[in-house]
């Protein structure tokens, strides 16, 4: 078997995302199910630049592996996205 899949989650702690709810996402790390726990690295990030052009209607944003964006992010939405990514990677 090759390297196990590793994933990186960036929770946007930029001001817009923070005010619109990303402060609630810090609990993500503790809520990772066992199959994800040792594969996912969670970090806070400065403004990801996605709220620019006054496009804050979809904040808070979370970015996975530098390319997949979860908007209106909630812990559940991020977990679902992570599970999908894990499946893709395991294929």
């Amino acid at each position: 078997m090759s390297e196990p899949c590793k994933m990186k989650v960036e929770i946007c702690l930029g001001t817009t995302c923070y005010v619109l709810g990303s402060f609630r996402l810090s609990a993500l790390e503790e809520q990772l199910p066992p199959e994800l726990a040792d594969r996912v690295e969670v970090a806070g990030a400065a403004c990801l630049g996605l709220c620019k052009d006054r496009n804050y209607g979809k904040a808070p944003f979370v970015r996975i592996n530098g390319n997949r964006v979860v908007d209106n992010a909630t812990i559940e939405k991020v977990l679902d996205a992570l599970k999908e990514e894990l499946e893709k990677c395991n294929e």
Partner: peptide
Amino acid sequence: FEELGALLAALEIDVIS
């Protein structure tokens, strides 16, 4: 604090950076 957060968001001042 809520209003201050909104002010900083409106001004796009990214506190953390």
